[in-house]
Nucleic acid binder design. Structure first.
Length: 270
DNA sequence: GACAACCTGACC
DNA sequence: GGTCAGGTTGTC
């Protein structure tokens, strides 16, 4: 499911409701994707007061008052949804958190790739240290500079590399390339300075615009209130194979590249 | 780089 | 029945 805009949407909504809340109970419906597993997870998390919910790359970080934290990666189909206390569990639900506030929090994950991890405060820095800069927290020129790479890798492969730039995933990589008029398959080292600038601007714009619409619900993503994002209709290439390019009218193509479905317009991307 | 792996479900 | 899916990681 989620890339930076989707995770950021969830973060903002969770932070608004859960900052200051105390975790009163934790019910594990289906163990196996939480660390440490089972009762040890419950013991680490129960009683903790959530100070804030933060995001780094596609990772959500629940910071606890005593300095420890809970990190969550939703991978493809993970969901964190605020529900009523009397919520009846659904098929793919794994864990439910109860607080000293009216809402409970459900973690569900259809494909089971996601994970929750209770960690010590001192472990956090190391976990986060692998990620490249946040694209919305650096300037356009700094972002453009991150795209200057002497490598045989393609532009798309570099954009998806979380150690280079954090948070871009398959949808926004394709969308940013289209907005910049550049083919995602281009070898990164062939990009000109002006093209890197265009890309940097396109990345920032598409991420910002998507956050404003609460993300893209192309498949299973919903926000922390269980609602779909509204950016799907704004996508220009992703999921538009065979449709005409909104800029030049050419039919949008979809290929497999960097092991991902890759969408582009052969007419206006070079 | 390409590929398989982790899973389930939707679609052709 | 086969293929594909907003992600990441480990193995050639």
């Amino acid at each position: 499911m989620p890339e930076l805009p989707e995770v950021e949407t969830i973060r903002r909504q969770l932070d608004e409701k859960l900052a200051g809340a105390r975790i009163k109970d934790v019910k594990i419906l289906r163990t196996g994707k939480e660390t440490p597993a089972g009762k040890r997870f419950v013991d680490k998390v129960k009683g903790q007061i959530i100070v804030s919910i933060e995001r780094r790359a596609k990772l959500l970080i629940f910071k606890f008052k005593q300095g420890d934290a809970l990190i969550a990666h939703l991978k493809m189909t993970g969901r964190l949804i605020l529900v009523a206390k009397n919520y009846r569990p659904q098929k793919h639900d794994r864990i439910i958190f109860y607080f000293n506030i009216p809402q409970a929090l459900v973690w569900s994950d259809l494909r089971q790739f996601g994970f929750l991890k209770a960690i010590k405060g001192h472990e956090l820095e190391k976990i986060l240290s692998v990620y490249g800069p946040e694209p919305l927290e650096v300037s356009t020129s700094e972002l453009a500079e991150l795209l200057r790479v002497e490598s045989k890798r393609s532009l798309k492969a570099v954009m998806l590399d979380q150690t280079r730039i954090a948070g871009i995933g398959n949808i926004y990589a394709d969308e940013a390339c289209h907005r910049a008029g550049i083919l995602p398959t281009r070898k990164i080292s062939t990009l000109k300075a002006i093209e890197r600038e265009k890309l940097a601007r396109a990345i920032k714009n598409v991420l910002r615009e998507s956050i404003a619409k609460q993300g893209t619900s192309a498949d299973s993503y919903v926000n922390a209130f269980g609602k779909e994002g509204r950016f799907l209709s704004r996508l220009r290439v992703y999921g538009r194979k065979g449709k005409s390019c909104l800029r030049c009218g050419t039919s949008i193509k979809k290929i497999s590249h960097a092991q991902r479905g890759t969408h582009f317009c052969p007419g206006c991307q070079r």
